[in-house]
Design a protein around this nucleic acid. Structure first.
Lengths: 234, 234
DNA sequence: CGCGGTCTTGATGGTTATCAAGAAACGTGG
DNA sequence: CCACGTTTCTTGATAACCATCAAGACCGCG
């Protein structure tokens, strides 16, 4: 966990984040000057449940999961954060505890902007406010879809939604050649904790999809979706 | 579905809504002048999935549910709206379809403020902006809790959370005497569609809780929680 | 008071969690 | 680069739990 991230260029950090994408060069410089960076190894915890985040945290590189533990020890993943995603937005508006843990599922470079600095940014560049709102709204959309999946869909359908979601996210990150192929960001257990089943069930369902010729797995993490239509026909 | 709601006083409508609670009398008058009212009978649909809401919709009286139907016809309830709650906030920030239906589960008086008018309000009274943000954040919190319930908790635990949630909401609405007693806002089927089980299961679990002496049911809708601690020990 | 809708309860079956063991993948150090 | 040890993954057997199907009871409303 080094204090600074040497590998990421300054401007890159802010430029690839959607909420700053409309700023011009000079404005971006201002933003960049406010950013502190921090590196986390895989499996390191970025933040613990119950703590108060002191600002906006932006994933610059790597991926992270936000999750909770139930009373009986089960893990439920609430969000997957990819490069460009942020968390800690709650602390910008209300003085409340964060109710989930965030852990790196890949080595992560984190960009941090303090609450105070970010509030000034929002005042100086009001459009950022709008961007944050949009992000909150789309996060609500996503959470609502998760609820529909968990509450009303069969396990088969949940696995299919999961593969489509991860495939699309991967597609957005690195431009892919045709025939959706991507690397799973989570272990079987991670996938299971995202869709509310056990790792054994994930294993069995993926094997079944492979036998039906809908997907093809190479190694444990690489997946190629052969029949996207079949997945979408949920 | 009459065009105006005669029974609700003008100022009441805006005053009881948290997002306007900080405004003074004159400002409230302005808000009130922008409001259009509409009444819906029980079971009427306030809005259909796929439509674009044209402004902010505030429940002034009654209760409503927001829900989706899965491909195979199952209903999943996403939100319960009580008096003072609002929906349609998405339309204020982005031009996107609403992805759920909203239906009255009691006769509802609805206050509507058009997108354009509300955006002017936000400009004139910037604090409203902050209030909306706070509401979005707390809605995210609630959705995350639902996900934890649906994905990682046993059905018993989900029923218990449900009763606590409904009890607390009822407590907030009408001040209750001690010994949490309240009227269920939903049928067994409604409860079931909220926590992702079948109505038969809800029936059985409630009966079990009664036999254990944790709750007491009178009629189909009235519930008294005798042992709140046992419910909280999830 | 009687009817329609809602609710409860029982019997059964399907689906997934759990327990268990072996196989594959991965990382490490020689 | 290979061998080893560890972690992760797969697969099977079993059991628990809930959905489903079905019938009768209760409730609430006209």
């Amino acid at each position: 966990m080094s204090e600074t991230c040497k590998s990421c260029g300054h401007s890159l950090c802010a430029r690839r984040v959607p909420i700053f994408s409309h700023l011009d060069g000079e404005q971006l410089e201002t933003v960049v000057s406010l950013i502190r960076r921090k590196h986390f190894d895989k499996r390191e915890t970025l933040f613990f449940e119950g703590g108060v985040l002191q600002g906006l945290m932006i994933i610059n590189r790597g991926k992270a999961k936000a999750y909770r533990h139930t009373a009986d020890g089960k893990e439920q993943i609430l969000h997957l954060f990819f490069p460009g995603d942020f968390f800690g937005e709650k602390s910008l508006f209300v003085d409340k505890k964060t109710e989930y843990n965030v852990a790196a599922i890949e080595p992560v470079d984190l960009c941090m902007i303090s609450r105070k600095d970010f509030q000034r940014l929002m005042k100086d560049y009001p459009h950022i406010n709008q961007k944050i709102m949009e992000e909150l709204v789309s996060r609500i959309d996503h959470l609502e879809s998760m609820i529909e999946n968990l509450g009303a869909k069969s396990v088969d359908a949940r696995i299919q939604s999961l593969l489509l979601e991860l495939g699309q996210k991967a597609l957005k990150q690195e431009k892919l050649e045709d025939g959706m192929e991507f690397v799973l960001p989570l272990s079987r257990e991670g996938l299971a904790n995202y869709i509310g089943v056990t790792r054994e069930t994930v294993s069995r369902k993926l094997s079944a999809l492979q036998e039906e010729g809908i997907i093809e797995m190479t190694g444990n993490k690489k997946i190629r979706v052969l029949d996207v239509d079949r997945l979408e026909r949920t």
